[in-house]
């Protein structure tokens, strides 16, 4: 396939859960090496789209391609092309931080000689090296998040999905993360697909942005283009104009979700 072919392609994808249409005929394409942000209110369908792209969910209709592979039919090949930081926690609490990293390195095929140095470098980057031998069970929410982010950066895939990677992170760590991600994109040509609720992050980091609302993409372009299209001054205003000022009913649901999660953490 040619280098100019999109590395991610989504065509008319639909995902329904019972009566809920979480994703409603979404289509987009992302160029190799691009940093792409997916913005939208709670429950808009961002995570669902990422889950379909990363073989975790099957689409109800439509086609998804990663690096030329049909995600539904060639799952194994598609999986070789990406890495992901999940929105929800996905660490093993009964392992230490280092063991979690090692588990990932081996499972995701990091060459043996590079495992130790890379783990060390990334754990130092997120300031967890000192705590490498602590069980993750004893970590604070933010520390877990930092571990998950470091883990997601361990193997160097062609595409990196980051689903709200900065959720619950302090400003310092957020800056470190985005600088590192930019470097990965520049030096390795890695394609980055991320979601966030911090519009300043999207404005600073993303080369292109899509805004999704109620399962439909309502606008795509650079931050400047989006402002221009909506005749507003910046991304934040454009975003609010496109998605409305009202709070989503999903917010309360989501809030409950967070509560359950923090209770589980507190065990």
């Amino acid at each position: 396939m040619s280098m100019s072919a999109p590395i991610i392609e989504v065509r008319d994808v639909v995902k329904t859960f019972g009566k809920i249409k979480a994703v409603d005929r979404v289509s987009f394409a992302i160029k190799r090496g691009e940093i792409f942000a997916f913005l939208g209110p709670n429950g808009a369908g961002k995570s669902t789209t990422i889950k379909m792209l990363t073989t975790m969910l099957r689409p109800t209709a439509g086609e998804l391609y990663l690096d030329g592979h049909d995600v539904t039919r060639e799952q194994a090949k598609a999986r070789k092309s990406f890495g992901i930081v999940f929105q929800d926690p996905a660490v093993e609490e009964e392992l230490t931080a280092y063991e979690n990293m090692l588990f990932h390195a081996v499972l995701y095929g990091v060459p043996k000689a590079e495992q130790q140095p890379r783990i060390r470098k990334l754990m130092a980057l997120v300031d967890l090296w000192e705590r490498k031998d602590s069980l993750v069970r004893t970590f604070s929410g933010g520390m877990r998040r930092r571990l998950e982010v470091a883990r997601g950066l361990l193997h160097h895939p062609k595409i990196l999905f980051l689903d709200e990677p900065t959720l619950g992170l302090d400003t310092q760590t957020r800056n470190i993360l985005w600088n590192y991600v930019r470097k990965l994109s520049q030096n390795e040509g890695m394609t980055i697909f991320f979601t966030t609720h911090y519009l300043d992050e999207a404005e600073d980091v993303a080369q292109r942005i899509a805004i999704i609302d109620h399962g439909k993409i309502v606008a795509t372009g650079t931050a400047a283009q989006l402002a221009k299209q909506t005749k507003t001054k910046n991304l934040e205003e454009a975003y609010l104009k496109l998605t409305g000022e009202g709070i989503r009913d999903e917010v309360s649901e989501d809030f409950n979700g967070l509560n359950v999660r923090s209770v589980m953490r507190g065990r």
């Binding site: 975790m56 999986r79 929800d88 926690p89 093993e92 499972l107 995701y108």
Partner: peptide
């Protein structure tokens, strides 16, 4: 508890 995702999307 979410850890299955980590295994299921491994290459």
């Amino acid at each position: 508890f979410g850890f299955l995702k980590e295994m299921m999307v491994a290459p």
